[in-house]
Design a protein around this nucleic acid. Sequence first.
DNA 1: CTGAAAGCGCTTACAG
DNA 2: CTGAAAGCGCTTACAG
Lengths: 332, 332
Amino acid sequence: MKLDELAKLAGVSRTTVSYVVNGKAKEYRVSDKTIEKVSALIKQYNFKPNAMAAGLRVGRTNTIGLIIPDFENMSYARIANHLENRCRERGYQLIIACSNDNPENEMNCATNLFQRRVEALIVSTSLPVDSTFYQENCGETPLIYFDRRSNSEQGMKVLSDDENDAYLLAEKLFSVQDNIKNVLFLGAVADLDMSHHRQQGFERSAARHNVNVEYLYANRFHKYEATEAFVDWLQNNPLPDAIFVTSLTLMQGVFAALLKVFKHIPEDMVIATFGNHEMLDLVPNKVVCSVQHHDKIVEALLRSVEFKLKRKKLQYDQEEVIPRQILCNNCE
Amino acid sequence: MKLDELAKLAGVSRTTVSYVVNGKAKEYRVSDKTIEKVSALIKQYNFKPNAMAAGLRVGRTNTIGLIIPDFENMSYARIANHLENRCRERGYQLIIACSNDNPENEMNCATNLFQRRVEALIVSTSLPVDSTFYQENCGETPLIYFDRRSNSEQGMKVLSDDENDAYLLAEKLFSVQDNIKNVLFLGAVADLDMSHHRQQGFERSAARHNVNVEYLYANRFHKYEATEAFVDWLQNNPLPDAIFVTSLTLMQGVFAALLKVFKHIPEDMVIATFGNHEMLDLVPNKVVCSVQHHDKIVEALLRSVEFKLKRKKLQYDQEEVIPRQILCNNCE
DNA sequence: CTGAAAGCGCTTACAG
DNA sequence: CTGAAAGCGCTTACAG
């Protein structure tokens, strides 16, 4: 059913139907009789205007793109969910794509979204910080980086201060237990910009506390990779007093490894982790978490999008930093 | 940059540019020189054809809609992720919307997706089984129900047999521990069709094993609701020998409640749960899980979509049932 | 081998 | 108050 046909059925012009479909009938003083007649037909046939045709005509798609590296990461899932709801409230459809942390995949997703003329693209990128891909391919599309950093000056940014959050997390770790001598730092994807910052923040704190530090990196942010890496490591190293991990999945891997090697969780080991503490109920250990304010991030993203949609040309793009919040589990 | 302008720059017609953009240049025997000239410009200006305009012209959107009730449910997240990847491989963009288990929200999402002329809609519906919404609003759009049942005859279906899966899960529960006398069944959203089936399957098994059964329903599939309900319940009831929960979030709630009331997890209580066992490493109890084969579900969905896209008119729509798989944690 | 022309389904000045 | 007409950016017969 198209507008055309409906107009014929109603015995009026396409213009008139279009007006009543878009709620502009009153404004253009279409007669009440006509409105009624047309409305009845719209309901009867469940007519819905083709969004592509309408969009093409008025030069809008009412669509916003979101690229995240991992769908199964609770943090991203939550942000995606909230963002989608808020976008729909505003009449925008969010299109969510997942790069699986694969740069090539990400570029495909982005290209696809650009072709669909998303009105803004929000991306937690897996590309190197100095990649020029987005500069070259964005065209006029407003770009918003979040969570992952880029050196590009183009694009709004909603980030966290990984260095400082890691520092604060480590400080909390050392304050929660004062006899820590040996710490293991366990990260993943060592060459990620984020990884550097978290390690640096950790180091800054560790240096203040006179502890021995060992570093270990898994290949991916995945439980099994962490388990494997940590089990291996335990072959040649004594159990540390504390472990600092850069994600929850890595922490899961740590627990799995401990169970594998010791058959139980050594309860006196303290753990610091980035990520949401919600799943930690059953952990006997002291655990310190650095968790994102998802709501604040979503708000910041919406602000950025709205800002860009209103005045697309902006001399300098802005950066907003959302600090994480530190929580404890089993701390006294 | 539009095709029009590029054509002018290249000094050729729009037709020619369109051919080379769409890789049909050879087919229409465009001269190599022209191809080269145009290709260079395409690269130089990063020209990407407007998907809406192209889609409008050829009557396709290369878009598939997916509506799920909960983004933060690992199970759906995984399916969404896999599906999105597989769709992109096939040249389709998956648009994922989340109803948050709110019928009104779901109808909004669906209407939005219909307006965008998704070529198929996959939905895990939160509408009542006898809702006629989709019959009335789908039009020609192929519909695929998954995970949640509908009485409608229209639409392919990829489901699981909740009754039987619950039966098998309960059977496993009773086989893993043979001295069970009192069982608590803990579900959520009692009036959901799925809830009935799971309870029925559970009952069928329980009847065979001569056990006392109590039933408890939380308002939503959410940890905190389950905690609250179970804590309340424990005021007036002794601890059961076993608990049968219909989702992982409910199980989390159970653990939280136990910690709240007893300060520790009673290890001799056996638990049966629907959902993925991956997060269960630290549970001391015997836990029996009924987990979905996500891969099989995704494959079935793709089959259904392809089937519908090829021959839209089908006398009778089909139903495919994907059995769950039973896994144990800490079972010897 | 290449171009002029029609048309996808809408919206919106513009004219009456 | 309503309609004829142009045009959004493409693709694709068709003609040459």
